[in-house]
Amino acid sequence: MSKTVKLVPPLTDEEVTALEMGDQVLISGVLYTARDAAHQRLVDLLAAGRELPVDLSGQILYYVGPSPARPGRVIGAAGPTTASRMDTYTPALLAVGLKAMIGKGKRSPEVIAALVQYKAVYLGATGGAGALLAQRIKKAEVVAFPELGPEAVHRLEVEDFPAIVVNDCLGRDLYEEGVRRFARSAGVTR
């Protein structure tokens, strides 16, 4: 049976391996944001043998490109973006200690294998719940690549940010198994 787990990064291997596909998580503390352009920069730095502008060890990356904040607000709407666009970059970041990612949509077989190898998880947040999720974000600041604008790496402080474990450390995939449970017709494939 799925359970609800409170998470506060940085995450340990023990915390991550205890998470199972289908578990609800509520995250409090720090999330780092990154989309396509920031991923390219991070992976280029690693390839050049340089240090990353943020230490990703034990951390959670949130795939988000928020709408602009109104004056006096922390952030605009801030729901997850499609994770598959980050697939090619992800194994390299897991190799340096990244422990979880939040996005929406399927991951590649390579990413799912890397989650097993490096003991990490992929979490799904509700796509289209940008206003709801914005309310769980208490602070936001740019910590790397400011020239990328909304795609810059932000450090967010969140409270009870809701997500669900889609891919766990055992290689299980809720997008496959959840659908299989409810399918009434043949041919449900990736």
């Binding site: 709407a77 509700t126 289209g128 719940a129 940008g130 206003a131 709801l132 914005a134 309310q135």
Partner: peptide, 18 residues
């Protein structure tokens, strides 16, 4: 969550989705 999102978006003038 989607119903709550719609309520917040309308009340606080947040976009429904980023």
């Amino acid at each position: 969550q989607l119903l709550e999102n719609a309520r917040i978006a309308s009340k606080e003038r947040y976009p429904l989705c980023q």
